[in-house]
Design a protein around this nucleic acid. Structure first.
Length: 409
RNA sequence: GCGGGUAUCGUCAAGCGGUCAAGACCUCGGAUUGUGGUUCCGAUAUGCGUGGGUUCGAAUCCCACUACCCGCCCCA
């Protein structure tokens, strides 16, 4: 027996109403806020992710599904920001009046050990906004995420924000941090030694107790807690905070929030739930003002976020699959099919029994699947009538066919 | 890459070395021929993840393998 691959899952019919609800809410909320949907390919040139996501990230170093085809190196997208940026540049979307607001949803692929809230193929839904540095766009971006989550019935969530500063102030901070870490570098974990060279900020994110201990010196804590970012970035951040306050968004500032992707600068944020187990982030995002230019486009500020749909799914209340409007009960399958088609053309959902089984069996099935039964037996066929039975109240009535159909239009 | 756990019908699940591998749900059929959601009856694993071994005898004990799940790391 061939099984689904490790870390992949079938989304079964019983789950589909819930998934459709997630998608429907996204469509209305994002459309209303002038986000346009974009769909990019599921595979891209490996180099796009190596450069776009960053070669110091775990995603690029050990989690990509990469293969060679016709001497090209191809990778299944591990996230969608790099792909959207590529499409933005390639299709000249930067010629449109800014800001350009996009949203997407679709499967992503990361080769990791699966566990609760983590699969190898999973789905993300996200937004990207290009062309504005204004803090108000950061605020709208975060607000849109919260609004979407609320629409799914998720209100008990923790929003954390931080500012990483711009490349300039980050450089200063980075050097100061490296200087403070250097004397004890050999005591840090292997990962952190690599991070020290490639992306020292990520050391702040390390979960290793030993490293945490080492970071817990007055000098380092002082550096983290003193605003290391430049005046301009600080102003941007406080502006954002003011906007969020005005929008009555509850958040906390987490100075150690760094995010694992290299492209972020200034604003970063995460939205977490306590009901998820250890993979507790439902949403992560931030500003990436340098990425468009780095991938060959004109200098363009941008900000975005992504949510893990499977994580959302496990948090939201499951939707019951909707019942059919009508189930046709008949001992003449062909006539039943024809009646069904007539109903379907009028946008009435319906089905019938292929086996011309006993009416008892057909009613059993009707009650399970539909709100109404249309009985089309010999008598009804002869008189061109239908017996309409309300399966909730058990009330039934025979009437001309046209009248029965009209009742549902 | 490193820890821990579990594998019995489509699903949940009992079984702890000895007649035919409980039970429940689902599905299908029946309870005098066209009316359901209640009730009653019946059907449905020569099979207990795979391969070895121990034993007169194994789903039950031992070994190996495989798969999946959970945690670390990281991320959504």
């Amino acid at each position: 027996m061939i099984q689904a691959q490790k870390g992949t899952k079938d989304i079964l019919p019983e789950d589909s109403s819930t998934w459709q609800m997630m998608e429907k809410n996204a469509l209305t909320i994002f459309n209303n806020a002038n986000f346009k949907e974009i769909r990019t390919p599921i595979f891209e040139a490996t180099e796009l992710f190596a450069r776009g996501v960053g070669d110091s990230t775990d995603i690029v170093n050990k989690e990509m599904y990469t293969f060679e085809k016709s001497e090209r190196s191809i990778t299944l997208r591990p996230e969608n920001t790099a792909g959207v940026v590529r499409a933005y540049i390639e299709n000249g979307l930067h010629r449109q009046t800014p800001p350009v607001k996009l949203w997407y949803k679709g499967p992503m692929f990361r080769y990791e050990r699966p566990q609760a809230g983590r699969q190898r193929q999973f789905h993300q839904i996200g937004v990207e906004m290009f062309g504005s540095t204004e803090a108000i766009s950061d605020a709208e971006c975060i607000y849109t995420a919260i609004k979407y989550l609320n629409s799914l019935g998720l209100n008990d969530l923790d929003v954390e924000i931080n500012s990483l500063g711009c490349p300039k102030c980050r450089e200063t901070f980075r050097n100061k941090l490296k200087a403070l870490i250097k004397p004890d570098l050999d005591k840090y974990c292997e990962d952190c030694k690599v991070r020290y060279e490639k992306n020292p900020l990520r050391i702040l994110d390390c979960k290793n107790p030993q490293c945490n201990e080492l970071l817990n010196t007055p000098d380092i804590q002082n550096l983290i807690n003193t605003d290391f970012i430049c005046d301009e970035c600080a102003e941007h951040f406080s502006e954002l905070r003011r906007y969020l306050d005005e929008l009555q968004v509850k958040y906390s500032v987490n100075k150690q929030l760094v995010r694992g992707l290299d492209y972020y600068n200034r604003t970063v944020f995460e939205i977490k739930s306590n009901n998820l187990g250890s993979q507790n982030a439902v949403c992560g995002g931030g500003r990436y003002d340098g990425l468009v230019e780095m991938l060959g486009g004109p200098p363009t500020p941008a900000i975005g976020w992504a949510m893990g749909m499977e994580r959302l799914y496990s948090l939201i209340e499951k939707q019951n699959p909707p019942k059919l409007d009508v189930f046709v009960v008949s001992d003449n399958p062909l006539k039943a099919l024809k009646l069904c088609e007539e109903l379907r053309n009028k946008n009435i959902s319906c089905d019938f029994d292929y086996g011309a089984r006993k009416f008892k069996k057909q009613f059993e099935k009707a009650a399970k699947l539909a709100n109404f039964a249309f009985v089309l037996g010999e008598e009804e066929i002869e008189n061109n009538t239908i017996t309409v039975k309300n399966l909730t109240s058990s009330h039934q009535e025979t009437m001309p066919k046209a009248e029965a159909i009209a009742k549902f239009c």
